[in-house]
Amino acid sequence: MALFSCYVDVERFLGESVKELVHFLICLRKKERISVILQIAKFFQYVDHLKQFYKFKSEKKEEFFSSLPISRTEKEILWKLLENFYLKHSENSSGKPIPQDDLIALRKGRLFEELVFHLGPIKKEKVDLLSMHCQPMVNRERVKIYCRGKELSGKNIDVAFWGRNYVEGYECKGNVEFFIKLGLSGSEKAKKVREKILYLNQLAYTLKRHFETKIYLASFAPEIDLEWCRKTALEWVRECGAPKLDFEIITIADFLKTIK
């Protein structure tokens, strides 16, 4: 029987403002947690930049509060955590400050990964182990993924859950529709986006030969054109000779509906 495992090369840095917000959200009462996380996801989808945050604070904060099924005290705590998330500065390893809008985008990605890690998997009864930033391995050898003879190397998945004969993996993006649109041009960045889509599909196809496998490309932004995303991704994977998508594209709303 084949054995699945993960190789983790480098752990990604997770700042205090992300840790604190994740801790608050996952510690909410279960009946309120899903609703609050979904409202936070909608908030993040439309409040991308620092200027938008200040505008939202002055014009829509109370409306936002009214959408949350938690106490006034909890709402005030949550807002303080959101302020830290948007306003707290940071530096990179060289000591140079990171532009705040870039930092906000980075934190959103980390937040989504952490939420999936703590709230998943969908099939809890089949999972014994979990990992973040996983380069998949089968029988203690890294899985090599190819597209028409070319290796798609140096890639991983953000979150992996696995057990005996079962693998559930997630590539987490702040907004999958925006991510796929980045792949439409002829730039080097667009090429990497397309290669990631090819990698996910070929990885899912390869792992399915050994295990019951579910690979997800997940969007923290809940209000996206899923049909267009799936159609575009399918056009790209056909470049590798794949007749269908072997991974699934979902949103945070889809994920929250299925977790127990």
Rank of each mutant, 00 (worst) to 15 (best):
F117R: 04
I98D: 12
G109V: 04
K108L: 01
P99I: 10
L103C: 03
I98T: 08
K123S: 12
K96C: 15
L129N: 15
E113N: 03
E113W: 02
F117I: 03
R107S: 02
G95R: 08
V127W: 15
S94L: 14
P97H: 10
P97S: 11
H118G: 14
K126H: 10
D101C: 05
V127Y: 12
S94K: 10
L106E: 08
D102Q: 11
L129K: 14
F112R: 04
I98E: 07
G109Q: 06
L119A: 01
R110E: 06
L115P: 02
L129Y: 14
N92T: 13
D102Y: 11
L129H: 15
E114A: 13
K126M: 11
F117V: 04
K126I: 12
D102H: 14
L115Y: 06
D102P: 09
L111V: 00
F112H: 01
H118K: 11
P97D: 12
S93K: 11
G109D: 04
P99Y: 05
D101K: 05
F112W: 03
K126R: 06
F117A: 04
P97F: 08
K126C: 07
G95S: 09
L129P: 13
V127D: 09
K126D: 12
G109W: 03
I122S: 04
G109E: 03
K96L: 15
D102K: 11
V116R: 00
Q100G: 12
